[in-house]
């Protein structure tokens, strides 16, 4: 196998509407690794995920994002996706009138750069659906329209399974799920994790880490990664809470990000 694909975030600062949210992030995620990213509400986790994917509206004021050794900071989101990046969104978007199948086939063709017949695609899709326990009815519906919270998250993971990126950022894919859905989504992700996939898993909960063991855990506060460690860090947080960590680190409690 060739060298594993690597996502490198170097000294990244970014603002939204003139307000600085990311205040110097350094992070390296390699294909085959699982990184958990935790941190209180408003600390900037989704912002980081969105900036890595190139979402418009965020301004990178300093630092670079590299993927497979190349600078992707100024590339369009679709170009990043075609190079092997993926973002499962915290709030998946509705696409009225476009069925999941049609959406996925269009994305598949774009990412893989190859034509696939409707029939062959159906077959591939069935396979991935079985893996994740997704039913037929869902893929014939319009993307996220009228989906329950659980269906939306499952749909994100189905896309991940079909598009086979090298690095995926999963932004709170475990939030808003009941116990059964969580289990289904988590085991789904667990099956996809392996030497070919690197994951940055944004989460608030220890639970999902029972299914997917992280190699690294990072804690983000106020737009910075304030602590990194192994999987034991997640347990530590669970018992300690962010309050104590803050005290240890000598950080002031703040509402939202600093200016």
């Amino acid at each position: 196998m060739s060298e594993p694909a690597t996502l490198e975030v170097r000294g990244l600062r970014a603002s939204v509407e003139g307000k600085e949210i990311l205040r110097g992030i350094d992070l390296v995620v390699r294909q085959g690794e699982v990184h958990a990213l935790m941190g209180p509400n408003g600390s900037g986790k989704s912002t980081l995920a969105n900036v890595i994917m190139g979402r418009p509206g965020y301004e990178v004021t300093e630092g670079r994002i590299l993927f497979k050794g190349e600078d992707i900071t100024d590339l369009s989101p679709d170009e990043r996706a075609r190079r092997g990046l993926f973002l499962a969104m915290q709030y998946p978007v509705e696409v009225p009138g476009v069925s999941v199948v049609n959406f996925l086939r269009t994305a598949y063709r774009a990412v893989k750069g190859e034509e696939i017949s409707a029939l062959a695609f159906r077959k591939l899709l069935k396979e991935r659906m079985a893996l994740l326990g997704v039913d037929d009815a869902m893929v014939n519906r319009y993307v996220n329209q009228g989906f329950s919270g659980g269906e939306k998250k499952r749909n994100e993971i189905l896309q991940l399974a079909v598009l086979e990126p090298e690095i995926a950022i999963l932004d709170e894919t475990d939030s808003g799920l009941d116990i059964d859905s969580l289990k289904q989504v988590a085991t789904g992700i667990a099956q996809l994790v392996g030497p070919n996939l690197g994951v940055l898993l944004v989460t608030h909960y220890q639970r999902i880490l029972n299914y997917i063991t992280p190699d690294h855990v990072h804690v983000m506060m106020q737009g910075r990664i304030v602590r990194s460690g192994g999987k034991e860090l997640a347990h530590e947080l669970e018992t300690k809470g962010y309050e104590e960590l803050r005290r240890e680190l000598g950080l002031e409690e703040q509402v939202g990000a600093t200016t």
Partner: peptide, 26 residues
Amino acid sequence: TLFYLQSRGIPRDEAERLIVFGFFQE
């Protein structure tokens, strides 16, 4: 919506076409 489609590798103009087709689907 455009960002969502683009984040799946679909180029902007094609994403736009897909959204318009979906718009007519109703």
